[in-house]
Amino acid sequence: MIQSMTGFGKHVVQLPSKKITIELKSLNSKNLDINTRIPQSYREKELELRKMIANVLVRGKVDFGLYVEITGEETTAEVNQVVVKQYMQQLAKIASGDDLKLLEMALRMPDTMKTDKGDIDETEYESIKGAMVQALTKIIAFRNEEGEDLKKDFMTRLKNLRTLLGEVNKMDPERLDTVRERLEKAVSDLKVDLDANRFEQELIYYLEKYDITEEKVRLTNHLNYFEATLQSKDSNGKKLGFIAQEIGREINTIGSKANYAPMQQLVVQMKDELEKIKEQMLNVL
């Protein structure tokens, strides 16, 4: 089963005085890149939360958000009264105004709020970890659904490649006959006496250089291996990428050996199908 690196997971947990929301969003990336957005009071737990994400998501550009909304009377933020009064006194010297207006201006100044940073409540943190597990479960489900869509697209491309390879197989005898006729005509146009046996030997040697039997066999094997990897239990985008490179190598060799316009047109179509596979491959875990 292949898995996409694109996904989204969200879980909300309601505590007596707080609503905690965990959000996870991931996009494709060569490695694991985690960006966090969490309140300052939970920074000491950041590494542990990152580890939870890394153990599950493995690869991708991941945006992790921990949002805390106070829904009860509890709050850790207080107005820094000393600082606010000093601001109001200074503002009163600069401009006249009523106390309410000065207070409004003062509260916009730096350091007017202070936070009592105490120890994290363990019960609360266990709820956060539980919400994280739920969010990770949801993002994995999302990735699996995206992976199924990718798999269907890959299977379509493989089918198209096999069809085109079948056309190449049908066309190959005609191609060799055409190349042979072209060479014989070119030699006859020279109007020189040649040893028939010698010419036949040279012609066979020349045609062997254009033989694509090995390339067709290897290409068939690579396509089968790609499909088998798609059907495996693990998602391995890098492995599929390596197989796609080998597929491309065989297609390119067939194209360079074809020396026959109709077959080269088929090769162009095969390259187009492979390019679509490579584009989608960037999003496979």
Rank of each mutant, 00 (worst) to 15 (best):
I2R: 00
S4Y: 02
G9Y: 01
K10P: 03
L15F: 11
N28H: 08
S29D: 14
S29C: 11
N31W: 14
N31V: 14
D33P: 07
I38M: 12
E44G: 09
L47H: 05
L47W: 05
L49D: 09
K51V: 14
I53D: 04
I53R: 00
N55V: 13
V56Y: 03
V58Y: 08
K61P: 07
G65A: 12
L66H: 00
I70Q: 13
E74G: 02
E74N: 05
T76N: 12
E78K: 03
V79S: 04
N80Y: 06
V82D: 14
Q86C: 01
Q90T: 01
D99L: 10
D99V: 08
D99G: 01
M109G: 01
K114M: 14
T115F: 13
D116E: 15
K117W: 14
I120G: 03
T123M: 12
E124P: 02
E126L: 11
K129F: 10
T137V: 09
K138L: 13
I140M: 05
N144S: 10
N144D: 14
G147Y: 06
D149L: 15
L150N: 02
T156K: 05
K159E: 15
R162C: 10
T163W: 10
V168K: 00
V168R: 00
N169P: 04
K170P: 06
D172M: 07
P173L: 09
P173W: 07
T178Y: 14
E181I: 06
E181V: 04
K185M: 11
A186P: 03
A186Y: 09
D189Q: 07
V192D: 12
V192F: 09
D193W: 07
L194M: 08
N197T: 13
F199T: 10
Q201V: 15
I204L: 12
L207A: 06
E208N: 10
K209T: 13
Y210A: 12
D211A: 04
L219A: 03
H222A: 03
H222S: 04
N224M: 15
Y225I: 14
E227H: 04
A228T: 13
Q231S: 13
S232D: 15
L240C: 04
A244C: 12
A244L: 12
Q245S: 09
E246P: 08
I247A: 01
R249N: 11
I251T: 06
I254Y: 01
I254C: 02
A261P: 11
V268T: 03
I277F: 09
E279C: 05
Q280D: 08
